[in-house]
Amino acid sequence: MTDRTTGSLRVDGATLHYDVRGRGPLLLLIPGGTGGSAAFDGIADALAAEYTVASYDPRGMSRSALDDPEAEQHVSEHADDAFRLLELLSPGAPARVFGASSGAIAALDLLTTYPGRVERLVAHEPPVVEVLPDADEQRALVTRVRDTFRARGLVPAMAVFAAGTRKDGAVPEPQPEIRLPPQAAARAEQTVANLPYFVGRIVPAFMSYAPDVTTLATLPDRLVLAGGRDSDGELPHRAVASLAGLLGTELLPFPGGHIGLTTHPAEFGETLRKALSAPVPAR
């Protein structure tokens, strides 16, 4: 296992906690959903053979506490957090960036706002639903999730969210309880603890984000859009595929589905390694 160091960075409205391992050019990993830095434990060590790998807990998640726990969230703030980390860890040199899900939305805003700081961005299934032909239906979904959360609580809101994001509205069958190793159990417990913040403030803010397609179209050599092989038809995959269509580029297939990072870590990490340095196909 690669040695890692942990640090903290004071930003506007929060204190970010981050982990760094490896040597070489900087690779910033931005987690999505309720994940934090630990979401990348399955791939970071392998990538650290080639890069200085930095991962962090987004503001409001896990160790990165908000000054005001009730503060509304904005994609631009999360993108600025990533920029501040780049300035700290790779001053003056463009860095490679990977973002997953909502983290990929923050990464897209980072790229369009600070294009000179990003050498290559791989964005895996950002749920940029505003680019979809049925964007009005997705806005209604976000409203239902928000209203359900406020009126009935977390579990019913998560059921509405899951039904709206999965293919054909299907909700997975409950799985039998699995006894996890202590480290994995602690990570799962933290993920659950982050759920109210994710549902109440990240989902409404991030799923209303409209990417700057015009600016992204001017950065064809810096952006790789990716989708899971097993998630075709699900809402995040539909959204990133639609964005790829608007930009006239191919969607790079990654192992697994929306959470392939967790279910197929070795294959996912190797695909990411190749995507970070491979030439982007002509558009």
Rank of each mutant, 00 (worst) to 15 (best):
H258R: 05
A185M: 07
T113S: 13
A282M: 15
F268Q: 03
F206Q: 03
R23T: 07
R21C: 01
D12K: 13
D230Y: 03
E137T: 11
R23C: 08
P236A: 04
F149R: 11
L110R: 02
L86I: 12
M61P: 14
P265M: 12
F254A: 05
Q138I: 10
A185R: 07
A38R: 15
F254V: 13
L121M: 05
P181H: 04
Y209P: 11
L27V: 14
R187F: 13
Q183R: 11
P279D: 03
I105Y: 00
P156A: 02
F268M: 05
P172S: 07
A188H: 15
T249V: 14
A205Q: 01
G116R: 02
Y209S: 12
L85E: 05
D81A: 02
I202A: 05
S102R: 12
L272K: 10
P174H: 06
R21G: 00
T262G: 14
V192P: 07
A39S: 03
D230T: 12
E77Q: 07
A14Y: 03
R4K: 07
A217V: 00
A95K: 10
D168Q: 00
A185L: 02
S231V: 14
E177H: 06
F161C: 07
R187T: 13
R150F: 15
R63C: 10
A93M: 14
T52E: 08
R144H: 02
A241R: 15
A106E: 04
A39Y: 13
F40E: 01
H17R: 15
F40K: 04
A162L: 14
F40W: 11
P181L: 03
E50M: 14
R21K: 02
A193N: 06
A48G: 02
T218K: 08
R201M: 12
G60P: 12
D81M: 02
L219N: 02
E50A: 12
P94L: 13
I202L: 07
L243Q: 02
G13F: 10
I178Y: 08
P265F: 09
T34L: 09
F83H: 12
R179G: 10
R59S: 13
L110C: 03
H78D: 11
G200F: 13
T214Y: 04
E77H: 05
T262D: 14
D212T: 00
Q190E: 15
L9A: 11
G32Y: 09
V122C: 00
G24K: 07
K274E: 03
R166T: 00
T2P: 12
L108C: 06
L154C: 05
G227M: 01
L252N: 09
T215P: 01
A162Y: 13
P220H: 06
R96H: 02
T2G: 14
R23N: 10
P253V: 12
V118C: 14
S277Y: 03
L246N: 08
V171G: 00
L66M: 14
L28P: 00
Y18I: 15
G35H: 15
D109E: 11
A162Q: 11
R150G: 14
R144Y: 03
G22R: 12
S208I: 05
A205N: 08
R23Q: 10
A135V: 06
S208F: 04
A135G: 00
F268Y: 09
L86Q: 04
P204D: 11
V20M: 13
T249E: 03
A205T: 11
S242N: 03
